[in-house]
Simulated scan of single mutants.
Amino acid sequence: MAKPGLPKLIATDLDGTLVRSDDTVSAYTHEVLERVRAAGIRIVAATGRGPRLAELVRTDIRAADFLVLAQGGWVIDQNEGQLLRSTWLPGRDLALVLQSLEAEVGPLSVMVEALEHHDAPLWGDFDPTWRYPVVIEPRTRAECTTGGVIKAFARSFEHDVDDLLAAARRIVPPQVASVTQAGLNYVEICPPGVDKGTGLAVVTEAVGVDPADVLVFGDMPNDLPMFAWAGWGRVAVANAHPELLAVADEVTLPNDDDGVAVYLDKLLSR
C-alpha cells in the first residue's frame, strides 16, 4: 500500500520532462524512481513514443509498472506482460483529416507510424529536421493511408507548430481523430478518444486507483489531457510549454536539472 499522504500512482512524460536534452536519464533519477516504487507507489511512463520504441521507453524508465504509449493509444502492463489497449486510426479518416488541414494551411510534410514492432520504420516524407534516429521509408500519401495507422505526424512549411495545432483543433472533429503536439514541430494525429488522460484511465481502472490519487509530470500540450484528468497533483518542468505552465499546480526544475526526481525526492522526504 502507498504511504498515507502520498499519491498512489505517478505518471510522467519522458522527452523534455524526465529525459534530459542529451537524451539521457540520470542515475539520480533512476534511483529516486526506485525509491518511489519501493514506497508502494505505482509508476507509469506516459509518452508520445509509439510501441516501436517500447524498448527505449523501458531503458529510460526502468521502474515503470505500466507504459502508456502513442499519446495514450497503446497501454502495456509491464508486470503481467499484457497489452491493455491498442488503437488504430483508419487510413481513410487520416486522408480526410490531411485533406481538410491542407485546404486550410497549405501543403504538409507527413509521416505515419503504422507498424508496432521494435524499431519499425516510419512511412512517408523524409524530413532532415527530425531530431531522433529513425528509418523513414518513402511512401506516397495514398500508400500511407491505405490501412490503419497508430498515429501520423504532420508539419507545415509555412506555419508554426502551435498555429498548425490551433488550426487542427478547429478543423478536425474529435469523433474523427485526436490532435496534439509534443515539441517536434509536428502536429500528431491519433485515433479519436486517444490522449494521455484516456490512456492513464485504462491503467487506473486495471489497478483500482482513483484519478484523485494520481500525480503527473509533463512539458508539452500533449500532456494537457492527463493534467486535466489527474487529481492529486499536476507538475510541469520549468522548460514546459506556456499552455502547460498555465494549468500546472506546481513547477519543478527543468528536465536538464532532473526536475521530476528532485520533486519526488522532496515528496518522499516529507
Rank of each mutant, 00 (worst) to 15 (best):
H159G: 00
F66K: 02
D249F: 10
A212T: 10
D23Y: 10
A230G: 03
E205K: 07
P128V: 13
L200V: 02
N239T: 01
S178H: 08
E205L: 00
L14S: 09
A206E: 06
G40A: 11
T145K: 02
Q82A: 15
V110T: 10
V209S: 07
G91W: 01
A212I: 05
V247R: 09
A46C: 14
G81E: 01
E31D: 15
G40K: 09
T146I: 11
N239Y: 12
G199A: 10
K3V: 13
V209M: 10
R42M: 13
A246I: 00
R92A: 09
V202E: 12
S178Y: 04
A246V: 00
L96I: 02
L33K: 09
D13L: 08
V57Y: 09
D223L: 08
P242G: 12
V235W: 03
T12Q: 04
V203P: 03
C144S: 06
P90N: 03
V235N: 02
L94T: 03
P221V: 07
P138T: 10
Y132C: 01
P225H: 03
W123A: 14
E104Y: 01
E55D: 15
Y186N: 11
D125H: 14
D219M: 09
L83R: 13
T146Y: 11
L108H: 03
R52L: 10
V110K: 01
G148W: 00
L264Q: 06
R85S: 13
A167P: 04
T145V: 06
Y186F: 12
R155G: 01
T180C: 11
A167W: 00
P254H: 14
V68N: 10
V262E: 12
V19M: 13
R62N: 01
D195P: 13
P174R: 15
E80P: 00
R139H: 15
K266V: 14
D23N: 14
S86C: 04
H30R: 15
A142N: 07
S109R: 09
P254S: 14
N239A: 09
A212L: 13
V57T: 14
H30S: 12
N185K: 05
R35A: 12
I61K: 02
G183M: 11
L184N: 05
G73N: 04
F126E: 15
P7H: 14
V202Y: 05
V179T: 12
D210L: 12
L122H: 04
L244Q: 02
G40I: 13
V161W: 03
A240R: 04
V112I: 14
I76D: 01
G124L: 07
T87L: 05
V161Y: 01
R169D: 11
T146P: 00
A39L: 11
V149K: 02
R85W: 05
N222T: 09
P225T: 00
L165A: 05
C190D: 13
V44T: 07
P191W: 00
A236C: 02
L67D: 11
G72Q: 12
V161C: 07
G40E: 14
P128K: 08
R141L: 09
L101D: 01
A238S: 13
R131L: 06
A45C: 07
V36Y: 06
W130K: 01
K266R: 15
D223W: 09
H241L: 08
E102P: 13
V194A: 08
V135M: 09
A228D: 11
L96W: 07
F153N: 05
A27M: 06
K196E: 13
G218K: 11
L200S: 04
Y263I: 10
D93W: 06
L98W: 00
K8W: 15
G50K: 08
V68T: 12
